[in-house]
């Protein structure tokens, strides 16, 4: 790719930061389930996927570092809440397993498509990372789909729980696709086709599984989309999460841990 212009660099950094922050925060949240998941085998699977997410965020912060930002630890462990660009969906506490599974399903479906789109990005470094992540996401979505279909068709309790988790998560998940100020640049430079395109593909993709799971998708037009995260306006849950995450690191950010 040719030398990036200033606006292109800004647009790229914004995009990468959004994705990386989502991955870090959701990976962090999902890791809270370690040793507490309803079934041992699932505990191990969920931890693997959480590790993948943290690993993805690290690789993306390394890319930001290449674009002139500080090193990954400094980005993740010293920024203030308002500098994070994650969506609200990933910030919520883990709740019960219905909520965490539904979030995992909705989010990872979007990630799988996002990385597929990014694997064709004109920004080669990002395309290469996306190709690798896409392979991992295939297993994450396979995992999520299997659970959704099973729980959506099992007991009265599991059906009711999954429907109410979907009702709660859906407006939050729409926040993943909050329009960004650089969408046009990203799309015209073939870096990323944009959140609107992604949302359309995502809706098609979740519908297939939600139908098999006998769950009804809330009406998108009347859903109160949870926007703001991409611009630094977060839920009440992010600050305590960051305080906890940086508790040891901030004892001495210059020390080697």
């Amino acid at each position: 790719m040719k030398q990036l212009t200033e606006i292109q660099t800004k647009a790229l950094k914004d995009l990468i930061c959004r994705i990386a922050d989502d991955e870090l925060i959701l990976g962090h949240r999902n890791s809270e389930w370690t040793a507490l998941v309803p079934i041992l085998e699932e505990d191990i699977a969920f931890s693997s996927m959480a590790q993948d997410k943290i690993g993805h965020s690290l690789a993306l912060y390394q890319l930001l570092n290449k674009l002139g930002e500080p090193d990954p630890d400094a980005i993740a462990f010293t920024r203030k809440e308002k500098d994070f660009k994650c969506c609200h969906l990933v910030e919520y506490p883990i709740g019960d397993y219905d909520f965490s599974l539904m979030r995992h399903f909705l989010f990872d479906k979007s990630e799988a498509i996002r990385f597929d789109l990014l694997s064709r990005s004109s920004f080669e470094d990002l395309a290469n990372i996306a190709k690798k992540f896409r392979g991992e996401l295939k297993y994450h979505t396979m995992h999520a789909d299997t659970w959704l279909v099973q729980l959506g068709n099992a007991t009265e309790e599991s059906k009711a729980r999954m429907q109410s988790a979907l009702n709660q998560c859906f407006p939050l998940a729409l926040g993943i696709f909050e329009p960004g100020e650089y969408d046009e640049v990203l799309s015209s430079e073939n870096i990323f086709p944009g959140e609107k395109v992604l949302q359309g593909m995502w809706l098609d993709s979740i519908k297939i599984i939600l139908d098999s799971a006998n769950l009804s998708i809330p009406d998108i037009d009347t859903s109160d989309r949870s926007y703001g995260g991409r611009k630094g306006y977060h839920t009440e849950y992010l600050k305590p999460l960051l305080d906890e995450m940086t508790e040891v690191y901030s004892i001495d950010p210059n020390a080697e841990w």
């Binding site: 890791s31 931890s47 841990w257």
Partner: peptide, 20 residues
């Protein structure tokens, strides 16, 4: 959730996963 830095965080996640 409190491990300082990526290296420790990833390693501790993997370790506890091993124990499970």
């Amino acid at each position: 959730t409190r491990a300082p830095g990526f290296r420790r965080k990833l390693a501790l996640m993997a370790k506890v996963q091993d124990e499970v």
